[in-house]
Write a protein that binds this DNA or RNA. Structure first.
Length: 491
RNA sequence: GGCCCGUUGGUCAAGCGGUUAAGACGUCGCCCUUUCACGGCGGAGUGACGGGUUCGAUUCCCGUACGGGUCACCA
């Protein structure tokens, strides 16, 4: 049978990488076996409705390269794919269970439930006291006729234990007394997430339920529902959580399930920060899963390779901490491997800020590609082009380059003369400076260092002396070098 | 607190009873060099603890500790 997995997010307007990774693994689980990946929007909570939130989901999946085979936007044979459009189908299922004596109407008020929780003693299992579980038919009918609001709850098993199998965690056993009489239909007539989830998964033919391990202990409730309907329980694949670090006011670092409070771990935030979608996917694929066989020890994967290499056996059980450093490294690897046109497409907005003409692109690609980890760094790296402050003259003193203020004055005086008559090409400038060093019998750096510093006004530049001068242009370079020379000489 | 799950270096992790306990990020050092990088080479750094089982445990079992998750008319 063809594998079918699903991604079932709620439209909250925000998708952090934990959700994204769940979607990724669901996608990979299906695609590795040639199965289908379905997108379903779970919007049964009207109170939390956020305008435009579904677009965030579509856009994220699209830019992440996680393509669904069925979904609200593209249709499919099991639609509709938005829960709010399927509302009419849930209640009959619940009613059916009531008729069969597997569920019941509950008329308890929220206030009563709150009191119940508040009065629970230390160490007691907090949960519903099953007050309405055994109401007589007459009482139920009376309440119904009186129009008292009600919810429908499932009768959970009272004793014994429930065991199920998970492909990652193995057999999980939970005492049944931990299981609550969960609500299936809320007072507003909407299904609860858990209930809608089961109905939808079954009616949509989902074969493999892939989700975060926070569902590990509530899965028996889901299974109780499948059993009540006599439906086949899907294959479970629970994923270890992605953790985020937070530092409290005492400087204590704690890790916890990734959420909004962990800063910019939203997919869109990361992209805005300069991380490439492919790099993010690559990174999170490796968070909680390790490739094996011919792919063992590999760090860089295309989506197609992930599909080929993905194996549930490689999923780990323990939670993993999101590490920006490694993401950054992967991002840099993607940039280094990028072809020039793609590189320019990403870099152009930053080049344009400095009014850089495209004849300089080849040079910029060469010097920038190996040394940026994010495209957003370009702005800062090229800042010297637009900004030439009265920098600290101590910059001319550089031990490694064997430069002092005195050698710098000497070098700059000689260099300006030669540069005036030099063709403004990289080779010519570099050659002229090398020749100058040779004629003075000093290291190249004794010439190159001060010229570069004088022209750039900062110690760190992308590229060396010749590259900096080319980027600046002859006129500006000469102006800056002369100015620096004047300052050095105290004129 | 009850229940569930987990625990290999700072982080991601391989391993599945016998290994000098892989690899990657980070970190440190050296080399290259016209700065910073890139690149190359090298170093430090790990099986939570205590009991078993076994000729032999990182690997299996049991406790303890620690960490995480979960206990909604939220999803």
């Amino acid at each position: 049978m063809k594998i079918r997995t699903r991604f079932a997010p709620s439209p909250t307007g925000f998708m952090h990488v934990g959700n994204l990774r769940t979607a990724l693994y669901e996608f990979l689980t299906a695609k590795h076996e040639g199965g289908d990946f379905i997108l379903r929007i779970e919007d049964t909570d009207q109170e939390r409705f956020v305008e435009g939130a579904t677009d965030v989901i579509y856009n994220t999946l699209k830019t992440a390269g996680i393509t669904h085979d069925e979904g609200p936007d593209i249709g499919g044979d099991f639609g509709p794919y938005v829960q709010s459009e399927r509302l009419s189908m849930y209640k009959p299922y619940a009613e059916q269970l009531v008729k069969e004596g597997k569920a019941y109407y509950c008329f308890c008020t929220k206030e009563r439930l709150e009191e119940l929780r508040a009065s629970a003693k230390e160490g007691e299992v907090v949960g519903y006291d099953r007050h309405c579980r055994n109401l007589s038919e007459e009482e139920v009918k009376k309440n119904l006729d009186a129009g008292i609001p009600y919810v429908i709850r499932q009768k959970a098993p009272l004793e014994g234990e429930s065991t199920y199998h998970d492909l990652v965690y193995g057999d999980i056993t939970i005492p049944n007394e931990e299981l609550d009489d969960q609500i299936l239909i809320k007072a507003d007539g909407f299904p609860t997430y858990n209930f809608a989830n089961v109905i939808d998964d079954h009616t949509m033919g989902i074969t493999h339920v892939v989700r975060g391990s926070e569902y590990l202990s509530s899965t028996p409730k889901y299974n109780a529902l499948y059993d009540a309907f006599g439906w086949e329980i899907p294959t479970y694949i629970h994923l270890p959580l992605i953790m985020g670090k937070t530092v409290d006011e005492n400087g204590e670092t704690t890790v916890s399930k990734l959420s909004k409070r962990h800063g910019s771990t939203g997919f869109e935030d990361l992209v805005k920060d300069g991380y490439l979608p492919e790099a993010i996917i690559n990174y999170i694929a490796l968070l909680g899963w390790a490739p094996a066989g011919e792919y063992e020890n590999r760090e860089i994967f295309t989506m197609d390779e992930l599909i080929k290499a993905f194996d549930i056996k490689g999923i780990s059980k323990s939670p993993s901490v999101f590490d920006y450093d490694k993401l950054l490294w992967i991002n840099a690897e993607y940039i280094k491997a990028m072809d020039d046109d793609t590189f320019i497409a990403h870099a152009k907005p930053f080049f344009d800020k400095y009014g850089i003409s495209d004849d300089k692109y080849p040079l910029l690609i060469e010097i920038l590609k190996p040394r940026i980890t994010k495209f957003t760094e370009i702005e800062e790296k090229l800042a010297f082009l637009a900004d030439y402050p009265d920098f600290d003259l101590a910059l001319f003193e550089h031990k490694k380059s064997k430069s002092t203020r005195e050698t710098s004055i000497d070098a700059l005086e000689a260099a300006t003369k030669i540069l005036e008559g030099t063709d403004w090409t990289r080779e010519a400038i570099s050659g002229a400076m090398t020749d100058l060093a040779a004629s003075k019998e000093v290291k190249n750096s004794v010439i190159m260092w001060p010229v570069r510093i004088a022209a750039a006004g900062v110690a760190v530049t992308p590229g060396g002396c010749a590259e900096v001068l080319i980027l600046l242009g002859k006129e500006e370079s000469m102006r800056r070098i002369n100015k620096a020379l004047g300052r050095l000489k105290g004129v």
